[in-house]
Design a protein around this nucleic acid. Sequence first.
DNA 1: AATAATTCCAACCGCAACGCT
DNA 2: AAGCGTTGCGGTTGGAATTAT
Length: 304
Amino acid sequence: MRAAMPPINTKNMSTPLEEEESELRRGPWTLEEDTLLTHYIARHGEGRWNMLAKCAGLKRTGKSCRLRWLNYLKPDIKRGNLTPQEQLLILELHSKWGNRWSKIAQHLPGRTDNEIKNYWRTRVQKQARQLNIESNSQRFLDAVRCFWMPRLVQKVEQASPSSSSSSSSSYLKEMCTQSSVPSQLSSCCTVPSFPTFSPLANKTTDISNSSSVTTQNICPTDSINISDQTEIPQHLTGSNVYGHTTLDQCYNIDSNDYGMEGISFASMSAVGFYEGTSSEGNWMCTEMSDNLWNMDDIWQLRSM
DNA sequence: AATAATTCCAACCGCAACGCT
DNA sequence: AAGCGTTGCGGTTGGAATTAT
């Protein structure tokens, strides 16, 4: 946001064009502007943004109007944190398509490319930085597949108890066989034995910066029902990528971070990931499932 | 309670693709 | 084919909000 900027451009003007441009507003949108834009589009539809901006009486560029509408005002925009399913999808689709945000966003109804891009930059890349891994490296991709994704799958299944546990296992095996992770990894890449979800641990503390948080800190509070909105791409549902995990089933859960935050340096290092083990060999396969959730304590001990 | 540091995300920018004349 | 306006995309910015000290 650029709220500190003057709302009206104040550069000197000499031509009519510049004079017009000088009246263009920038920075955060006001409620009045939002109302103008919304009402105009309701009456006349979207498109022809430059003309729309003028006709609606907005002192904004067409570009700005389009962005405001698509990213904020459009009725089907979904607010709130990304659900585990959505995060899973983003991770998966990004591994396929890279930074094709708009393409990824097409598979997340109600989510904008901007939102997904922000999610990637603020959450995903943050983890890469903390792990000292290039976020676009194969190593990080492997970490995502075999550490982060399992947690998300676990979250999904906890919220959808009717789905079988084997579904996530098949999903994970699929994920791991897709990656360049050594082949033997796929056999060990099972869902770790996560602590079971505790409804009593009902506090929405920030888990983003904690290296020792487990799923017990995550709780269903504000229910976000996306069951009728989350659309799984056909190429995923059609294949066994998601196995028979019922991602389209009813899902109500608070969507705080289910990310890699809990996957600490310790978790990574404990299985030989973080400390520069080679990409060959069974660097991630050593009792991961048993150790993943208590390695933070070990890490803390090590750092003392 | 005050201050500093960090995170988050709305909005901007430049560029490329597209469509029309 | 060239020129021009429009649209869409991905990268970047910067200030409000939040968290840490």
